[in-house]
C-alpha cells in the first residue's frame, strides 16, 4: 500500500492559532489558574493549553504546546464515545482531519495578517526612531549654537524640514 500525506501548517504562534480557532467558531479558551479546575480531560489538563468546544471520548479536544508547535490532543478513534456514527454522518460534525485541514487554511490567512501587523509595527518603530533622531539633532544643534553665542530662529522650509537660522555679530 502506498500513501501520500500532508501535514498541517505547524501552528507555532499562539495568537495566530487562537484567532484562527475563533474564526472557525470553536471557542478557544486558554487554560489558566481561574478555569483549570473546571476543565476535564482524560489525558490531563495543563496551564497554557488551549481548549476548544470539540468533544470526544477523552473529553474536550485541546491544543498543547509541544516541541515548538501547538498539537491537537484528541481521541484517535473518532468512532468511540461521544462521537457516534450518526454524529459522524451529521453535516455539522467535522472530523479531526477535516477540522485540522480547515484550521490550517485559516491559520495561513491569519498568519499573513500577523506578518502585515509585524511589518506595520516595524515601520512604526523605524518612524519613531527617525523622529527621535531628528529631534536629537535639532536639540543638539540649538544647544551648541546658543553656547557659542548664536541667536537661533527656528522655521520650516517648503519641504517641511526643520530650518535653524543662527546669527551672531563678531
Amino acid at each position: 500500500m502506498s500513501a501520500v500525506i500532508k501535514t498541517t501548517t505547524p501552528f507555532a504562534i499562539e495568537t495566530v492559532l487562537i484567532k484562527a480557532l475563533a474564526v472557525l467558531g470553536v471557542e478557544p479558551l486558554k487554560v489558566d489558574a481561574s478555569n483549570i479546575t473546571s476543565l476535564k480531560h482524560n489525558g490531563g489538563v495543563q496551564l497554557g493549553d488551549i481548549f476548544t468546544n470539540r468533544k470526544d471520548y477523552n473529553g474536550i479536544q485541546h491544543f498543547r504546546f509541544e516541541q515548538g508547535r501547538w498539537i491537537l490532543r484528541h481521541d484517535s478513534d473518532e468512532m468511540n464515545g461521544h462521537i457516534t456514527a450518526s454524529t459522524m454522518a451529521s453535516r455539522e460534525y467535522l472530523s479531526v482531519q477535516k477540522f485540522l485541514s480547515l484550521l490550517s487554511k485559516e491559520y495561513d490567512i491569519v498568519y499573513q495578517e500577523y506578518l502585515q501587523e509585524l511589518a506595520e509595527q516595524e515601520r512604526l518603530r523605524l518612524e519613531e526612531q527617525r523622529k527621535k533622531r531628528v529631534e536629537a539633532t535639532r536639540l543638539q544643534a540649538i544647544e551648541k549654537a546658543k553656547s557659542q553665542g548664536y541667536s537661533v530662529k527656528e522655521t520650516h522650509n517648503i519641504k517641511g524640514q526643520i530650518q535653524l537660522v543662527l546669527t551672531r555679530m563678531v
Binding site: A141, L164, V165, L166, V170
Partner: peptide, 23 residues
Amino acid sequence: MPEQKIVITIDDDGAITAKTAGF
C-alpha cells in the same frame, strides 16, 4: 559689526545641510 550666519536644515532622516555666510 559684521554678522555671521549659519542656516542649518535638518532633513527627514536627521541629516544636516548647513550654509554659512559672513565668515
